[in-house]
Design a protein around this nucleic acid. Structure first.
Lengths: 237, 237
DNA sequence: TTGCATAACTTGTATATACAAGTTATGATA
DNA sequence: TATCATAACTTGTATATACAAGTTATGCAA
């Protein structure tokens, strides 16, 4: 079986993306969708809940599901978006170069952020990203070697996430992120085209797999003028 | 009736917050919880799904629900958190002062961001916030007067969200946000204690009610060293 | 002891039913 | 015509059942 509610979500999400159903319009009612997809109402409701969570629709008791204005802003949409996905959605020239990919053993501070034993084999990866020919993003990654033993510079220059999910079948599940602004240090200034900027937007994130193992720690430094973060959030309370 | 799944969520969330159940431990199984709360498994599952969404637990097929490490970082946790809530969780001295609260009619640019008719009555609000005696946040709000007719400087100095939700019974439902870094202008420098900083982190957000009406537009400028954004995100794809 | 099938758990998906709660259009009544 | 109750929709909550899929411990067999 192939997850009906996911399939229904995909169909409806695409119809909204392609504006087959326009913003402000109502989706067909749950009963109609139940008929259309030859399923049960609960299954339809699961699909609709996903749409709601991802900002496609707003459900209104008694009325129906209204299609929301789409963010034309072609950006991160919070969540876990890899740089490659991000770059694809921006129609700019993007270039990634690997500064360093080395195999080390966890110690002290490294070991602490990855919450692993002293001496655990890890990858230490540094990459620089160019947008329109300017070096504006500097990424440092720490990952457990055990889970991505065959990592190479070529893979790192493409997309780590693709490699993990499609090649290795690992399921990235959730992440914690922190965004702050910090002074650029000497190394930052050496790597990036800082112009007259003295500060960087720093995104630190810890990425976890389905089984809750902390797998990757990333520090991503962005030149302030090239940084933008877009978010859709529902009030949970 | 009083929404059982919400009640179950509240109980379990509190047990996790107070570390009655600690990180790394498993929750009781769905069947056990079903018995404990004298309900059905589906209802328990709805509660667990909420916990999962909000970063309290990770569900593992075949194993159970693991309690996740809690963010000790006492900060925004994405979502829609009002400044008052935020301030409460930080044990710093916080002070809000209203710079301006005036009643206007929408025109040109104002009208555009609020997506309303020319001439619609709106509130224009400007506030400055001090942390530990330093002026570090500058907020500008536009809101539809129709929905909050009795707004006063006193209310604005406290919490607009409390007023809207508790006094007026309005349901804030979702928001779109954008975070960028911009140069501070003359007005910013006049209002805030900028020190040697030249830039500000600007959070622009559009806040919507349950019926999808755009109700408030906010521009919140933060001195870079006092800005921090923390996020928990699940990979949806 | 070791290895392996299996049983007994766990969560995931799909379905059906019932009623509550909110919205809207209908139509009878004044 | 105008008003209002109501019927006919909509989504929300709660329950029950069945089976699929993943994990773990049991215990038999080699």
């Amino acid at each position: 079986m192939e997850k009906k509610f996911q399939a229904i979500y995909d169909v409806l999400a695409k119809e909204i993306q392609t504006e087959k159903i326009r913003a402000g319009q109502l989706l067909p009612s749950e009963n109609e969708l139940t008929e259309r997809f030859a399923t049960s109402r609960e299954t339809v409701r699961k699909a609709l809940q996903l749409l709601s969570q991802n900002g496609y629709i707003q459900k209104l008791q008694g009325k129906g599901s209204i299609v929301l204005e789409q963010d034309k802003l072609p950006l991160p949409v919070s969540g876990l978006t890899s740089f490659k996905e991000l770059a694809r959605s921006m129609s700019q020239k993007v270039e990634t170069s690997v500064i360093e990919l080395s195999s080390k053993e966890a110690h002290g501070c490294n070991q602490q952020v990855l919450q692993c034993e002293e001496g655990t084999p890890i990858w230490e990866l540094q990459r620089m990203r160019k947008l329109d020919g300017e070096a504006v993003i500097y990424d440092k990654d720490l990952l457990l070697k055990k889970l991505a033993p065959g990592l190479t510079k070529e893979i790192a220059a493409d997309s780590i996430y693709d490699y993990l999910e499609q090649e290795l079948g690992l399921s990235i599940s959730y992440a914690r992120k922190e965004v702050v602004v910090e002074e650029a240090d000497a190394k930052d200034k050496e790597i990036l085209d800082m112009g007259s900027y003295q500060q960087l937007v720093v995104v630190r994130s810890a990425v976890y797999l389905e089984d809750t193992t902390l797998f990757q720690y990333t520090e991503s430094k962005h030149r302030p003028d090239k940084f933008r973060f877009v978010d859709f959030a529902r009030r949970t309370k």
